[in-house]
Nucleic acid binder design. Structure first.
Lengths: 113, 113
DNA sequence: GTGTTGGTTCGATGTGTGTCAACATAAATG
DNA sequence: CATTTATGTTGACACACATCGAACCAACAC
């Protein structure tokens, strides 16, 4: 199981040149992780949570069963977008810091302020 | 056929709050359009082309059959990421201007320089 | 008109994926 | 130990999707 193999320092901005097949493969994997409505809601719930992290119990109200939530969180983790840590009873997820900036740079070709 | 219905002024940054179901649906559709390696190569080919546009004949060398290229370009168009125009013999695709900035803002929460 | 080149649409097919119910694991609590 | 609560995993199923060849349309040349 290959998890969170550095997805950030991956590829040039989309406006720079045509991506190679390998670059496209890696970049597509990140977009694919965010291409499902449920995953997107889960991700934004974590990303917007105070402290940058949230326990599953706080974000699992997205209209699907709990196993499905777990499945989607796993996918986000495999894509390198989220990291998880168990603290006692609950499991907390947080956003991998550099990921958002990296994907933003991919689209805009510039670092945000 | 609903094409390019304003996708840009759609949704708040992912870090702001948990997206609503409707917001997640719309945002996921844009990410999904970029979640395929072939589409990503086609999109970057158009986005990086001089003048911001390219004819199909210039970008269709991505390792799949030409009908498949056409299929993917159609999807990108339906997602509001590309626009097409026929000029004589050839069909030209160009990037919808505000889309990249809009998606970048979605991820970083800030406008690029 | 016929022919040729560029592009899209149409079926068909195989693979991928989102979903849930059922089961399994992990930690706290009694 | 048994029980309860919180997550994760497995297996199965239905639907979506990427791909192709073949048929089709659009513009140009003859």
């Amino acid at each position: 199981m290959l998890e969170s193999e550095a997805v950030v320092p991956c590829c040039p901005p989309l406006t720079e040149r045509t991506l190679t097949a390998a670059e496209a493969e890696r970049t597509a994997a990140m977009f694919k992780a965010l291409s499902d409505p449920v995953r997107l809601r889960l991700f934004s719930a974590v990303a917007s949570a105070p402290g940058g992290e949230a326990c599953v119990c706080d974000i699992s109200d997205v209209g699907v069963s709990q196993p499905t939530v777990s499945h989607h969180l796993k996918k986000l983790k495999e894509a390198g977008l989220l990291a998880s840590e168990r603290r006692g009873t609950w499991v907390y997820y947080r956003v991998e810091p550099s990921v958002l900036a990296g994907m933003g740079r991919l689209l805009t070709g510039a670092a945000p302020a």
